[in-house]
Structures are given as structure tokens and as C-alpha cells.
Write a protein that binds this DNA or RNA. Structure first.
Lengths: 115, 115
DNA sequence: TTAAAGTATACGGAAAAGCATATATTTATG
DNA sequence: CATAAATATATGCTTTTCCGTATACTTTAA
């Protein structure tokens, strides 16, 4: 992944909101992101697929659900950028209303409540 | 400027190369950038205009030449991102061959040698 | 084995981005 | 004033991005 490609990943609000929530929550399935951002499932799925294809995200299927997380093996130079990107989102107040629907502790990870 | 817009500015190689050189040199005119990157003048001019319009760059005409610099009044949240972006470019070795043609000290700023 | 939930992808269209080329504009200079 | 240099913009085109909708795939559960 080149720096320009990395920035392109972050250059769209939907992708940036997904990444922000994934960083906050650790991992989320598609339906949780769809519910949290109030966007259509194919839209979320397409953006997640593009982020996976460029190496920013990892996915793992668990039964019915596909969980996404930030790829822990990203190149070293991306980490400070990612940190500052999230800090920038935080400091500008963008997406401050985005939040994953609260889950009952004993409901995860088997059954996301959102679906 | 939103974070996503900021990242879009950095998501193109030509723009990233311009920003990298401008950060290194402080300020450069269009013909210096055109020569340093070996790209067409309209292409450079268009990218610089887009970066100026979104607030990332400032321009100032000095006689025949228009000098661009990184806008010193960028919002605070952009600075660490910019720093890390340049560090990323450096560490990945991209654009490592880009350099402004050396100027004789007494030739600047009146007459860029490149033109 | 059928149905339903969760997810991915195909398709078609709209909008934006990016480019090469040509031309206009501004400034300096003879 | 005419010309040349530096820069900006217009034009037409191709490519990419983004989206909504429809549909296919996968897994679970009845």
C-alpha cells in the first residue's frame, strides 16, 4: 500500500466513520455498522470490501456474521497516521453521534442485537 | 475543511509530491515544481489550484512568478497529520528522487533557474 | 429441505476526477 | 506597443468513484 492509496482509504466519510467505530469497538460485524451508521447494507459492505482489499481491514466469518477489524499487521508507517486521523475526527467533532447500539454483555459475540 | 477532504488532498501522487517538495523547500513557484516533477505545467497548475481552494496551500504572486507554500494557518488538527504523512512518504521511499533543481543563492528569489 | 438472516456482488447510471491539448491572462521587457 | 515567459483556465475526453437496486451466496434454524 502506498501513502496515496492509504489516504484514499480515509478520503470518504463512510469509510472514515467505519474505521472510527472499528477502532473504538475493536471489531464489528456488517450489520452492526449498518445499524450504527444508518446506511444501506450493500453500501457498507462495498466500502468494507474496498478497505479489506487494500489491506486496511481484516475480516473473519463467525457463523452467520462477518466481523471486521483494523488489520493488526499494517505497515509501521500507517499507525501514527491512523492515530492522528482518529484524533482529527475526534477534535473536529465529526461523526460524534455515531455509536454502536449497546450490546448486552452476554449477547456478544454470538448474537449482535442490531440484526 | 473536513478530515475526509484533507485526506482527499493527499490521495493523489502528484499532489503528495508537490506537498512534499513544498514542505522541504518552504516555497516554490509553479515552474520549479513543473521542472522538479517533470510533469506538464497545466497538470501542476490544476493540482496546486485544487490544493489552494481547499485551504492546504497559499499562493502569492511575485512579479512573473506565483509562489506556493503550505498554508501556515491550517487548523491545528492537520499539523500532526501532515507531519506523519511526510514521514510516511520518507519512510516508504516514494518520491525519493524528487528534488528541486539547485538554485544559486543569489539567483533566488528573483529568477528561478528552472524557467 | 425449505426459509430466513446476514453478507457479497453484479448491474446500470450519475457524478467526479484526472488528463492532454489549446488558449487566455498577467507581467516583464525590448 | 509587441513579444515572450509564467501561469491559469477552458474544452473534450476517458476513467474512476459512488450509489441504489436487484440478486446471489452462505449459514442457521425449523
Amino acid at each position: 500500500m502506498t501513502p496515496a492509496q492509504f489516504f484514499k482509504c480515509l478520503s470518504d466519510d463512510t469509510r472514515l466513520r467505519c474505521i472510527t467505530l472499528l477502532h473504538k469497538e475493536g471489531r464489528l460485524c456488517v450489520c452492526e455498522l449498518t445499524a450504527a451508521l444508518a446506511l444501506s447494507q450493500p453500501k457498507i459492505s462495498r466500502h468494507l470490501a474496498s478497505l479489506r482489499q487494500c489491506g486496511l481491514l481484516q475480516d473473519s466469518r463467525e457463523g452467520q456474521w462477518v466481523y471486521y477489524r483494523i488489520n493488526p499487521e499494517l505497515p509501521a508507517w500507517t499507525w501514527p497516521l491512523l492515530q492522528n486521523a482518529l484524533a482529527a475526527v475526534e477534535s473536529t467533532g465529526h461523526f460524534k453521534n455515531d455509536q454502536v447500539r449497546l450490546q448486552q454483555m452476554d449477547a456478544r459475540p454470538d448474537t449482535p442485537l442490531c440484526c
